[in-house]
């Protein structure tokens, strides 16, 4: 299964990555390899296996609605590339996809 250039560009757009033509080719090959490997799994006969959302045999793990203290603001901001007061500052975004 070989991905097209358009498909690679679409995936890059969804991840907000800008790729050079060279990178598009390189990822096209690498992503195609990954897909081929997963395609092997498709060969397994799963007719009697119900769709599984979670491989871990757990369910109904719930917590009580209790409040705990939050992080101090300085720690919240510690990794922020840009801040303004106690806000994170990011590039202008108008209109939502």
């Amino acid at each position: 299964m070989i991905l097209s250039q358009e498909e690679v560009n679409h995936i890059a757009l969804l991840a907000r990555l800008g790729l050079s033509n060279e990178e598009v080719e390189r990822f096209r090959e690498q992503l195609s390899n990954i897909l081929e490997n997963f395609a092997i799994l498709q060969e397994v006969d799963t007719t009697d296996v119900p769709p599984t959302a979670q491989p871990i045999p757990l369910q109904n793990i719930l917590r009580q609605d209790d409040v705990d203290s939050s992080l101090p603001c300085e720690e919240v901001m510690a990794n922020a590339p840009r801040r303004e007061g106690n806000y994170f500052r990011v590039k202008s975004v108008l209109g939502k996809s």
């Binding site: 705990d68 939050s70 992080l71 603001c73 919240v76 007061g85 106690n86 806000y87 994170f88």
Partner: peptide, 12 residues
């Protein structure tokens, strides 16, 4: 609440 005071690693 003032901005970014009800925040922890999970909701961040």
């Amino acid at each position: 609440a003032s901005p970014n005071t009800h925040v922890c690693p999970i909701c961040l």
